[in-house]
Amino acid sequence: MAVRKPPTERQRRLGAELRKMREHVGLSLTEAAALHGTDRTTVSNIEAGRFGVSADRVRVWAANYSCPDTAYIDALSQIARERRTATANWWDAYRDKLAVTALDLAEMEHHALALRGAQITHLPGLLQHEDYARAVFQEAVPPLTPEALESRIAFRMRRREVLDGHGAPECTFLIHEAALRMRFGEKRMIKSQLDHLLKQPDRENVTIRVMPFAAGGFPSAGSSTLYVSGPVRQLDTVQLDIPTGSAFLSAETHLANYRSVLDRMEERCLGPDSSRDFIHDVMQDL
């Protein structure tokens, strides 16, 4: 028998949303199981993401819970359909080479309608060129083996493809001046990276805004944040960089708080044209 692949963060999210529906109408696992004509263990395993669930069952359960939001139900049904009809994605080739959270992030980016990120001390991964990414990964603790280093670089370069093509998400990158001035690698390489950065807004779906030191303090100054917009707001996700990889947040309070954090940070950023000029000036200072 083939080994079952562990659920992805999107699949776990599907189960979590079904749990929220159940809890919203005040049903216990036992009561929900009776309503659905199944057993308590099955409901528990589906809500935990351990068992798959068909799109038809998602719709039946949503109807049993009297959920009126058709767009929300359609989006959940699509996630269920993906798991049942899944084919290999490019990130699956890295399943035994990188942390699962890295693969989950690539999958979320692939399905996102919009991305809005805030970077404080290094440039956004999706906007890095290969030499800069190498310099960043060479600072990893513990040090990466040559094979692991090359895998991470190749994975990051492949992730950049999400910025192009049909259905590419609308992307807004808020970059602090500290990230522009932090020197990962030697001067010539940094200039090349900044020049690469200046070219990114040539894409219609990419906006870069810089927050200069002169703007003062701002919320969440100590961490980098990525807000991934799903097909409906209830399915948005916040991704945070942590020393061991990534953390994903999806509670309504977390989503609201991080939308506010990013709104307040964006208010203090320079506009897109002024940001381009600022990056150019940083290049001239090197």
Rank of each mutant, 00 (worst) to 15 (best):
M157Y: 03
C67R: 12
A63F: 05
E139W: 05
D104Y: 04
D92I: 01
A133T: 04
V141H: 14
D104W: 00
V141A: 15
T85A: 11
Q78H: 14
R134E: 11
R116E: 09
Q128V: 00
A118I: 08
G49W: 00
A80Y: 01
D74E: 08
F155C: 10
R50F: 03
E82R: 15
V60M: 13
F51Q: 13
A135F: 10
Y94A: 02
Y132L: 00
D131G: 14
R81P: 13
E139P: 09
H111P: 10
A55S: 13
Q138M: 10
D69H: 02
D69R: 00
H110R: 13
L127E: 14
K97F: 05
A93H: 05
A48E: 13
V100G: 14
I79A: 09
V43R: 03
P124F: 03
T42L: 11
W90Q: 02
L163R: 02
W90M: 03
H122V: 14
A63P: 12
V136P: 11
D96R: 08
R116D: 05
I153Y: 06
G49I: 00
A148R: 05
N45S: 10
R50E: 12
W91E: 09
A75R: 09
E109C: 03
E130Q: 11
E107V: 01
A154P: 11
A75P: 09
A135K: 05
R158W: 10
A106C: 02
A140F: 12
I46A: 04
A135D: 07
R84G: 15
V162W: 05
A133Q: 08
L127G: 04
A48W: 08
R95E: 12
S54A: 03
A99E: 14
D56Y: 05
A93W: 02
T101M: 06
H110P: 12
F137S: 01
V162L: 06
L103M: 05
E150N: 07
A118N: 12
R83S: 12
D92M: 01
R84E: 14
L163K: 00
A114R: 06
A99L: 15
E47V: 00
D104R: 02
E147P: 00
R81N: 15
E161G: 09
E130Y: 08
R50A: 11
P124L: 08
N64Q: 15
E109A: 01
I153M: 05
I79L: 10
L76R: 05
V100Q: 15
M108G: 07
Q78I: 06
T145R: 06
H122K: 14
R50W: 04
T42F: 08
A75V: 09
R84K: 15
A80P: 00
N64W: 06
A99P: 15
Y94T: 03
H110A: 11
A102C: 13
L163A: 03
Y132I: 04
R158A: 15
R84Q: 15
A55Q: 11
R158V: 11
I46P: 04
R59H: 03
L123W: 08
V43E: 10
L113Y: 07
V58M: 01
I46Y: 01
A62S: 10
D131S: 12
A148Y: 00
S44P: 01
S151C: 09
K97E: 13
T85Q: 14
I153T: 07
L144K: 00
H122R: 15
R134P: 08
T87N: 15
E150M: 04
G117F: 03
V162R: 02
N89T: 13
L123N: 07
